[in-house]
Nucleic acid binder design. Structure first.
Lengths: 230, 230
DNA sequence: ACCTGAACACCGTTCAAGT
DNA sequence: ACCTGAACACCGTTCAAGT
């Protein structure tokens, strides 16, 4: 894509002729991650696609970790505005907050694991994202402590769900046949209930649909919060 | 720890004088991961602590990924036996299954992320671990489809919880002051509910206790399953 | 079969030098 | 301040050679 090109001469470029910017670097990095995954996003590779010396990047971002932190920022920049909505029940508002959060993380699946496993990124993101959850549960009439715990639980669930969704989906779109095989091969008395239930479900029943799995979880959640705390 | 030592002469060792075994390699690898984290566990470092040429390892394990897969195996080897227990309610049995699963993954915190983000490892582990969940929900009288979804949801939650527990705990034992700071610095009208709730909770209220957070989540869960599906 | 040594094709990052 | 080039201290893995 980027013609090998004659090497640019050294020295500071004239004003307005800067070849790089933090933003341009991050956009290029996001493209690499989206197209080829996190492992492909190396500093040298990034520099190559920008047609630039690897070391040039370090004038705009201190190191590779900062590049990934910047990517997380980029992804969540859009999400910020979520209007309060009193037209729906608190239950629906809570579910909707979870759906929005899931979608945001899902929009760049290759980045999800990176985001979820980086402490500072997660806490940034959470602070920005979490208001709608708090609002819904406040409307439900929960006490502060209960709101706090309920939100943590729900967010943790979404994280775990995304972990499965992004890594499993990447590897095997169908996990049903694999699962049936595995269970079939287990020593019969080791997991009798698992064996019976999966067999009753059959091949089609195991064709896991992430969307309906997510919705089903949300329902369990909301009902659980309702009967536990209201 | 391992004296630099004279290099061992080349050539196949006599029977019974093998210097390496799959098991010895994996135990050494686990030690490195536990003590210094996954990044420290390189093939060259592993060979060095074993007092062996880096390439020797490849005669016992095909590559680095296989080493990590082996580690996951090692960690879950103990877990296998979980006796059926009819002395407690299905609710308690389900909670207990979740606690056991969490503990297993928590026993090697540095390995948790590795396990959770590796597809093949996760599915291995899940198949081995999942029976108690199925048993409890079967006793509760759920239909196969509902059992399937409930287990997926609960497992996903545990994964997300562990992600937070292992990565957050590693970085900051106290997230309360940090969180209060962040929230305080937000534009006031951006997250009013979050601001109010965290303020009401106060510094102590935010001192998150992972154990009680986990328990609280389990209660919400069980109640949710109960009112949704029984 | 099991171990070694040299080599290949990579990494992230530091540092001195250009303008 | 911004870009470059050489260099350092690493990686995982292949391959040929020893016994």
């Amino acid at each position: 894509m980027n013609s090998a090109g004659k090497p640019h001469r050294s020295g500071r470029p004239r004003t307005g002729e800067e070849r790089l910017s933090r933003d341009a670097i991050l956009r290029a990095a996001l493209r690499i991650v989206d197209d080829e995954g996190v492992e492909a996003m190396t500093m040298r590779r990034l520099a190559a696609t920008l047609g630039v010396n690897p070391m040039s990047i370090y004038h705009h971002l201190p190191n590779k970790a900062a590049v990934f932190a910047g990517l997380a920022e980029l992804v969540f920049a859009d999400l910020e505005a979520t209007a309060a909505r009193d037209d729906v029940s608190w239950q629906d508002e809570l579910k909707d907050a979870a759906r929005t959060y899931r979608d945001a993380l899902r929009s760049h699946p290759n980045l999800a694991l990176q985001i979820l496993s980086d402490t500072s990124t997660v806490s940034d993101v959470v602070v920005v994202t979490v208001e709608p959850f708090y609002r819904a549960l406040d409307r439900a009439g929960l006490a502060p402590r209960q709101i706090f715990e309920a939100v943590n639980t729900l967010i943790d669930f979404v994280h775990g769900f995304l972990l499965g969704e992004t890594t499993v989906r990447a590897a095997t779109f169908e996990l049903a046949p694999d699962l049936l095989d595995r269970v079939g091969k287990l020593p019969p008395e080791k997991a009798p209930t698992l064996a019976r239930v999966t067999q009753e479900l059959g091949h089609d029943g195991l064709a896991y649909d992430f969307d309906s799995g997510f919705e089903s979880a949300l329902t369990v959640f909301v009902n659980g919060i309702e009967t536990t705390w209201t």
